[in-house]
Amino acid sequence: MTNASAVEIEKKIEKIIYRTALALDDNDWKSWFDLCDDAFFYSITSFSPEINKKMTYFSGNKKELVGLMDMLPKHNTDHSPLHRHTSVYTVEVADEGQSAKAISSVTIYQNMLDGINSHLDSGESRLFVIGKYFDEFKIEDGNPKFLSRETKLDNRRLDKGSHWPL
């Protein structure tokens, strides 16, 4: 692997992380899944000083996620849009360019729509959660695809929570 191609892959990985943020912001689950390998595994985790344990708040493979997202219209959901501010901190390409890991910071705002008392709240932006993305990629023909994403939250107070992946 040449240095040039590693840089190229890094750029592609940055791009795919940002494209994912845009797709998730739009609740465009399909575009997100298109960026994921079939073996993709997603989880939301946090560490609780209260019980002194690392916790998993949510997890699922690609098939499960697709099923859950398809089922969303049948659920009663808070539709207040979530918007991510993501900065890619590190990208590490390994395995001769066959795989990579990236760490990004993420801050998610909720733009209130129908959550509580919309006459007052709708249109207001609130900080929803903060944390980091720990992503792993599989790279084929120079093109990265998500193998896994762990969304490590700082928050343990999550109030109404969400039906949407973060």
């Binding site: 997890s59 659920h75 959901t77 808070d78 109404k160």
Partner: peptide
């Protein structure tokens, strides 16, 4: 954990609905 989260986790199906209620 997974069984717990699917219904009762903060990103599970039922808890979010109960809390909206």
């Amino acid at each position: 954990v997974k069984a717990h989260n699917s219904i009762w986790g903060p990103f599970g199906r039922n808890l979010h609905e109960d809390l909206i209620g």
